[in-house]
Amino acid sequence: MNEQTKNESKPLFSISGLFSDCFAPGRRLRIHILLAIFAFAFALRLARSFQIERIEKDGVQLLMMAEDIAENGLDDGFAENPRLPPLHIFLVAAGMRAGIPPEVAGILISVLSGALLVFPVFFIAQNLFKTFLPAMISAIVVAVYPNLARVAAEVLRDPLFQLFSIVAIWMLIEGVKSHKLRFHLVAGICAALAAATRSEGVEILVAYCLYCACSLAVRAADDPPLRMRIRRTLFSVAVFVVGFAAVSAPLELAVSRTMSQWHAIDMRIVSIAEAFVKYPKSELDHKIK
């Protein structure tokens, strides 16, 4: 939320004059506005959750697995669906151990995750637009977006996954801007947490590799020489992977002794992508004739 610095790259677009009277807020006011948006997002999702009479179909499976784990331990808890990533189930089970009913724990996780999404979205928008106003509107839009708000009032893994994914992207943005490795480390950790929530979490790793490849291929005016950029990129990716492995490896080890077949890098996605790429085009053409 700091003012635009000289070193920052060009803004996506800038709008001056709009709301200049009422929106030239100081740092404290900005924080208050952001907190108000978060409170609104939280209240909206909570209100929606009170309207739900029956949770989503997929949510029941999560709750049943969490109940099994909370009552009988890890051993057979994943038998219901061994490929299901464990983080959300663990959190619900932990909530149950703390005395919260499973359905309430599941909804609370979703509501809180969904509302927290306004923070990373705000900071990413500020990186894009360089001004407060569009960043604030981005936070408002994500707070009220009906599709997101409705899912964030259900017992589903999606809100938690979205939160970790977007925080990982935000951290990567801060990392590539400032070249500080600690951001890459946190991004790796968040990406691993996202992968432990939904299998698609590995997309962040792929996207970061794609970004690195593009950044090496395209050189901006003030970029350093290629050799330095390669070295910097390799370090960043290595730190990201260390952060990713620091969370995913112990988690994989913990569930490997159970019936879980979860892996941080989902083999189904790899095999589907492989099948898609390898699909014989001639065979397809033959069928279309």
Binding site: S9, L12, N127, L128, L172, E200, A207, Y211, I269
Partner: peptide
């Protein structure tokens, strides 16, 4: 388009969008 070249945040978001889009399409 120009911000994708100049702004790492835009570039990273576009990379993520591309990957998400392609993998969702494959799925």
């Amino acid at each position: 388009f120009s911000s994708v070249r100049e702004n790492p945040a835009a570039r990273l978001l576009l990379s993520y969008l591309l990957v998400v889009f392609v993998l969702r399409f494959v799925l």
